[in-house]
Design a protein around this nucleic acid. Sequence first.
DNA 1: ATTGGCACTCCTGACCGCTGAGTGCCAGAG
DNA 2: CTCTGGCACTCAGCGGTCAGGAGTGCCAAT
Lengths: 338, 338
Amino acid sequence: MLDERKLEVLRAIVEDFVATNEPVGSKHLVERHRLGVSPATVRNDMSALEDEGYIVAPHTSAGRVPTDKGYRMFVDQLSTVKPLSAAERRAIESFLTGAADLDDVVRRSVRLLAQLTRQVAVVQYPSLSRSTVRHVELVHLTPNRVMLVMITDSGRVEQRVVELPAPLSDETVTDLRALLIARLAGRPLSEAAAALSDLPGAAAPQLRPVLTTLMTVVLETLVEKAEERVALAGTANLTHSALDFPIMRPVLEALEEQVVLLKLLGEANDPTTVHVRIGEENQVEGLRSTSVVSIGYGPGTALGGLGVLGPTRMDYAGSISAVRAVARYVGEMLGGPS
Amino acid sequence: MLDERKLEVLRAIVEDFVATNEPVGSKHLVERHRLGVSPATVRNDMSALEDEGYIVAPHTSAGRVPTDKGYRMFVDQLSTVKPLSAAERRAIESFLTGAADLDDVVRRSVRLLAQLTRQVAVVQYPSLSRSTVRHVELVHLTPNRVMLVMITDSGRVEQRVVELPAPLSDETVTDLRALLIARLAGRPLSEAAAALSDLPGAAAPQLRPVLTTLMTVVLETLVEKAEERVALAGTANLTHSALDFPIMRPVLEALEEQVVLLKLLGEANDPTTVHVRIGEENQVEGLRSTSVVSIGYGPGTALGGLGVLGPTRMDYAGSISAVRAVARYVGEMLGGPS
DNA sequence: ATTGGCACTCCTGACCGCTGAGTGCCAGAG
DNA sequence: CTCTGGCACTCAGCGGTCAGGAGTGCCAAT
């Protein structure tokens, strides 16, 4: 069906189109790439590629442009890994080494990624439910108000002020703190529900309402809601990449929805393989004309995802290696201080 | 120089141009507004206005467009306050009442503001240095690592993990906590430096290195760095407002710089008066073709700023009242739970 | 001071024909 | 059966021309 040379032609088309953003014709193709055949032959191959749906001509007398299917074939079979340049490696290291805070790590990575790929970058904060609890703290603010602080081994700190149903003494708070630490410390947050389920029953009756309140907060606020943090950078690159103007608006809108961003990264759980979603493959309405390159990061098991988003006409090889490299560094950073 | 009617003409020009985004001519003007004079008269007035630099003609046979100076005159003298519609009031209330968290308040306000004005909205987190300390907590994570947590009366919680120069016992940490609370609680963070300055001298010698470390963290991290948080929403509205494409890129770039955003809001310290910066009045390179409407918010004294950014051709009256209204609500929200 | 009239400018959109890039097809060569 | 050169065809893009229209500036009259 598609012999070696046709694939080679497809690869050349994708590369040229990505570079120039103009439909590429048979003549240009044989000029710029050493295909060893004449334009006429290339035309035949292109005709075949068009029949198979890998490329398409915007209009009769124009060159061809890759379709989503064409890009798909390109990333799956044709693109060769593009190693990062020395400068890029240096940039990554110098960018990420100075980071103290978790916030800092995330913010720097997202900017770095945007800069490296010249595209929109997204980095998810380490997911709480996949982290384990390093420490829990109860701070007694006023008699009937405490602050619950939870620190995970990925360095993330979540806190929440809780109104109590009844005032408590300092001693009770100390007891509660010990109780929570005993139950939660060292455990993954995904097991928090199970670890706490028998608490109200096991405790003194007068503490039960307090405990249920606390449990609700731990479970609802810290586990579910807090999942949803992401950082974004490089939106200005959307203009550079010559996306048509009318296309931009829905994209910008989608990027403001945290939910959407999480969906983009959510499926990329595996820190070893890069996911690429191209154009229409994308589930999110409004991002149908863009591609997403994403991966999970984390020491061993994935704590979250990160990736870049750009026009389908993007440098896949470069993006893939940048995304992979940044993910590895971020994983190391978060693995280090644990 | 500029009699009553000329100003009326200027107002009409601004209003029409804002509504239609097209240069407005004398004929359209007398049709749409009850000026009571003929087009020819209006032409004379327009000619005068052009001589004074309030309006300009893009080319010979086009209508006139307001200049920055024209808009300035409009907001200073000509625009009448546009009261919010009932629907808008309802939107504000329902949007902001459900908010528990400070994060929640900020995020909701910024989205609300973007939605109300159909422009880019910016909300600064309550500035720490202008808040007072409600509580300080030291959490002993490992022998030589503590977490410092600081809660302000605006509901903001900042935390930071500190590596200690030497391991500490639990008792020492308890002592330190008491010390910090005694020195800081109830005081504005801007006085933190003064309140802590004599600490190392006053304490037991073996604690001095620890105290200096802690002080550094309190001052550098919590007071200075943390100043810089802002929330952003509505970037997609940039496309809607028919800013020319080449203009958009620098704007998007500027919006990604926290520093720039803070500069925009920084001068708006007063919660009673709305600041409007128009086009070239703007200090930030790249935002020269946009206008910023901003105000301070907070109970009594300003805790931070918020505002919107859009093309110079924007609905100033509407933006001003929306910005003012949201600021008032946010101020109330933050004043309430203190 | 205001107004109607008038000549002038020049943007806009439509129409036209040319050019060039690119294609598809075919017949011939290897 | 594959490749190639040749050739006719298509059509977007470009530049030029032209008419229409919106808008202006100026002037003389009220």
